[in-house]
Design a protein around this nucleic acid. Sequence first.
RNA 1: CGGGGCGUAGCGCAGUCUGGUAGCGCACCUGCUUCGGGAGCAGGGGGUCGGAGGUUCGAAUCCUCUCGCCCCGACCA
Length: 639
Amino acid sequence: MHRWSQLFIPTLREAPADAEVASHKLLLRAGYIRQLGAGIYSYLPLGQRALNKIVAIVRQEMDRIGQEFLLPTLNPVELWQESGRESVMGQNLFHLKDRKGAELVLAMTHEEVITSIARNELRSYKQLPQVWYQIQTKFRDEPRPKGGLLRVRQFLMKDSYSFDMDDAGLDVSYRKHDDAYRRIFTRCGLDFVAVEADSGAMGGSGSQEFMVYTEAGEDLIASSASGYAANLEKATSKLAPVQDLEATGDGLPELVSTPGKAAIADVTEFFGIHASQDIKCVAFMGSRTGQAASEPLRPVVAFLRGDHQVNETKLNAIAGTAELRPMLPEELELYIGGPAGYLGPVGIAQGMTQGSLNGLKSGKPLDRVKGIFRDVPTEGLKTIVVMDLGLEGRANLVAGANKQDFHLRNVTPGRDFTPTVIADIRNINEGEPDPFAGEPLRLGKAVEIGHIFKLGTKYTESMGSRALNAAGKEVTPIMGCYGIGIERILTAAIESSAAAFAKLTTDDAKLKTQPDSNATGSQGSRTPEPSYALPAAIAPYAVVVTITNVREAPLLEAGERIAAELDAAGVDTLLDDRDERAGVKFKDAELIGIPYRINVGKKLAQGQIELVDRLTETTIDLPLDQVAAHLKALTTSKP
RNA sequence: CGGGGCGUAGCGCAGUCUGGUAGCGCACCUGCUUCGGGAGCAGGGGGUCGGAGGUUCGAAUCCUCUCGCCCCGACCA
């Protein structure tokens, strides 16, 4: 039991002007954190207590599936050069020199270090599988830290790594993490979704992000009532069938003069068609990560339905590029053969021949496409033509003719042009049916709290980790890597709760204003103070016992006794024994986000106290002898 | 890195345009009153006006340079 009068809890009535998002303001006002620099924060006692509770839950669940390490943050740069990530990570990796001039980096993740241990120690299949984890400070020189603790340059991460002899083993390790993560986030009281994610710069096959919907988030995710959920970078949808146009004339592509009709809206109006019956062309020049300026850019041309949008992450994955920029007019002429506004797939100057691609024409053999495009840029490679799945099997579409002021109709993919590859390269739209159950998709911002990843042999291969299998044959262990942002669990919990409170107060305001038309208007335009409450499992204290007036001896004595009883019952208790007015103490208790408050006040004369449940915004009276048992039941988390 | 904004007491701000003794609210200290929703009255402490240079009799204010922070974008296991 801690006494508020002796603690350092510097609450603020007003948030510093720099704070924008709710969790940032509240963490500052509640005395959880103070800022030291851009993306650098000190955790004050309350913040540290909350983080410690989260860490304890994470550790408890991780110990069920793995073993804890503590790896060094200070890494010799050579280690990162060996894996090739020193250049890949670029400026995001902090660099420094020691007194001898040797270059060091501050680790932003630990694949390299853990693999260096694995390659020295893991020699036999008998030693596998292994799941190794740590909870440790990570450093990333973010280009733009923001949102308080949401994106920072120094933060706590639980990272783990699995080593298995084969894919089946990796599946097991991955599944164990999936289960552990769900238990962890559930115990932390978060309402989360697990989404399919893009593999990004990590490389590898499967990956899943754990997200919490919040306006403060930086990612866009799609989910539906059926349980389907995916990052927008990966999300797909089932498209409603489109009625194709009737063929005109001899059914072959027909040149139509369309002077000045460059925009899709103009074209569809001119032909009297829907945008879904038109082919849109989006053309890029792509480059690879760390590509030298001297290396030629890769032309990437995407065709998709007129009413669809390109998703550049998906397109990058297909084209084996990392960055795309729009083609310049002369590039359009060179690689497509037409002017902007009249670009189309028919007769496109496609350098990738049937032969060079070994008949890669559908989305299926993507890995082989990646193999060609990513690792062995083909000599004389010209335009990569990617057609979106939304055009597959369609007929008699309208498209640019690659000729100023002309379009073609009766364009049928497969017959009139052959894309290099057919793949999903579009953004889904809100409300489209999900790919499995057909439930409408909801798009929303979310914050990523965890990520699990089937890594493969990227590091074990490049860093030379090998183990002998039962047959005495040398194999490369397969890795998985898995991360949880500790601070993000805290911020996500605050953001979610603050949003729920904000909704309550606005609903409340609506209720109040509706029936009472002659109200005095006192609610005015003042925005309600943001409020929140943390789940008991991660709050710095589960309960605060508020003695409404410490100068009244019976109240003080009862408060002390109740707090001691709670303490004895194992409930993490804060006793507000300050000589302050009751109002101040109520406000402070709410500000620091404690989920349960016991008011020791007037009702003591009847042998009762009030229990305020901040999560449900309800208050009940309880007899003194039931307090400890009641709170213990409320606050005990089940591991 | 591109665009925008802001640096004046612990926090929130005014003062800058038009140069002339650095102010307000909250917080803090003392006293009295008050005591279940951020109390009232009285008194008090606290400032290199982000930093450096310049213009001027005189600079928070004008000029130059610079540092820091926030937001949007780019970027981002």
